[in-house]
Structure formats: structure tokens, C-alpha cells
């Protein structure tokens, strides 16, 4: 059974997914401040690695990466409401790119499973 990564069209499709997803995040005042002063190239590369992972593409991403990457944002008020926004836009973007409903649900669940890592909880 092909992964969603393969179904969507592999690397070029995940690049498109990443850019669309990032545009939504940057346009939303609830989360856009977290991306101030950030190098867009690097941020997109990280988000692409994340989206590659949650769509079942090749990766070695671990919860430890997520924990380390977001630790400094906790002091800036990162909380569950922001993770909700991420999960929402992730699903919305996947739907736009024609991902089947089941696959979208799986990805949402995968993203949600990282919530404790992102928010630095045990």
C-alpha cells in the first residue's frame, strides 16, 4: 500500500504542501509572530521534513527533534491552542491537495501524537 507521501506525488508535492501550509501559518495572527526573525529557507526545510514524516515519506525525524526545536518557543507562550492551529491548517492543506479523508485523519493523528514533545511535556 503506497504511503500518502507517494499518493500525493512524492517530493515535489510535499514541497507544494509545505509552501501552502507555511503561507497559511504566516497569514494567521494567532501563530505568525512565532515566525518573525526566522530564515524562511531553513524554516521551510524543517517544515518539509516534518510534513515528509507525517505523510509517511523517508525520514528519521524523532520526538527529540521536535522537543529541542520548540523549547525556546515555550517561553514565548507556545501552547495547545497553537498546536491546534497547526493541525487545522495541516488537514486543510492536505484536503486542498486532494488527500483522501482517511489519510488526512491519519496525518492529523500523527501530528497530534507529537503534541507533548512540541510542548515539552513528559
Amino acid at each position: 500500500m503506497p504511503t500518502l507521501y507517494e499518493q500525493l506525488g512524492g517530493e515535489p508535492a510535499v514541497q507544494e504542501l509545505t509552501e501552502r501550509f507555511y503561507r497559511k501559518m504566516l497569514a494567521d495572527d494567532r501563530v505568525s509572530d512565532f515566525f518573525d526573525d526566522i530564515d524562511m529557507d531553513r524554516q521551510l526545510a524543517k517544515q518539509k521534513a516534518f510534513l515528509t514524516m507525517v505523510t509517511g515519506g523517508p525520514n528519521h525525524y524523532t520526538g527529540k527533534d521536535m522537543r529541542t526545536a520548540h523549547a525556546h518557543l515555550l517561553q514565548r507562550g507556545l501552547n495547545d491552542s497553537h498546536v491546534d492551529v497547526v493541525v487545522h491548517y495541516l488537514g486543510e492543506t492536505l484536503e486542498e491537495l486532494g488527500a483522501p479523508a482517511e489519510a488526512v485523519a491519519t496525518v492529523r493523528a500523527a501530528a497530534n501524537s507529537l503534541r507533548d514533545d512540541v510542548l515539552g511535556r513528559r
Binding site: 526545510a45 524543517k46 521534513a49 515528509t52 523517508p58 528519521h60
Partner: peptide, 9 residues
């Protein structure tokens, strides 16, 4: 290095 999967560059 980070992802070692050809993604993170």
C-alpha cells in the same frame, strides 16, 4: 546533519 534522509539539507 539532522534528518539523514535527504530532506533537511
Amino acid at each position: 546533519n539532522s534528518c539523514r534522509s535527504g530532506v533537511c539539507q
